[in-house]
Amino acid sequence: MAPRPVASRTFSYFTAPEIAFIDAAVSRLIPADELGPGAKEAGVTFFIDRQLAGSFGRAETWYMQGPWKEGTPEQGYQLKLTPAQLYRVGIQGIDDYCQRTFDKKTFAELGAGDQDKVLQGLEKGEIELAGAPAKEFFAILWQNTNEGFFADPIYGGNHDFAGWKLIGFPGPRYNYVNEIEQYGKPYTQPTVGLMGRNASTRRG
C-alpha cells in the first residue's frame, strides 16, 4: 500500500522527438524565471512519461467502449484515443504543423515567441491537427503539466519541491492543531514529501 517512488530517470514511453517537444512545451507553460525553476527543471517531462506508461496513459479506469461520437462540450471527452495515444498523435500533428508553417522547424526548434503562439492556437482550437483535436490535446497537456509541477516528488516531478516552494505549500503534514489558531503567523517548517524531507533527491 505504501508509495513506491520512481527509481531512475529512464523514459518508458516518449521517443526522443517527443521528449524534445514536451521539454519545450512545458518550458513555456511554466517557465523558469527569477521566482524559481520551471516545469522542465522540475522534471515534468519525466512525470508525464511515467503517467503515460502507466494506468492513466492506458485509460484503465475510463469507459472506452464505442460507439464514439462527437458530443457537446458538456458531454466531455469522447475520443477513442487513450491519453498515451492522444499525446503520440498530437505531438506528431503539432510538429507537422510547425514544419509546414515555420520553415521546416519542429516545435522544439522555434523561438519562445512562436512557441507561445502555437500553444495559444492549440488552446483555442484554432490549429487543425491531423488525428486529434487541438483543444483536447492542449487541455490534457496543461492538466498533466500542472500535476507534474505540484504532485509529490515520488512521481518524478516537483523536483526539489520546486512547485511547492513557489507557492508556500509545506507538503503533506498531518498536524496543525496548534498552528491553525495562530492567525497571521507564517508556517516556517521545512517542506516535506511523502518520503520525507529529502524526498526528491533520494535515490532508489
Binding site: 500535476e147 504532485a151 515520488i154 503533506p172
Partner: peptide, 9 residues
C-alpha cells in the same frame, strides 16, 4: 495510513 494517504495525485 497517515504516512501515505495525503497523496493528491
Amino acid at each position: 495510513a497517515t504516512t501515505h494517504i495525503q497523496d493528491e495525485l
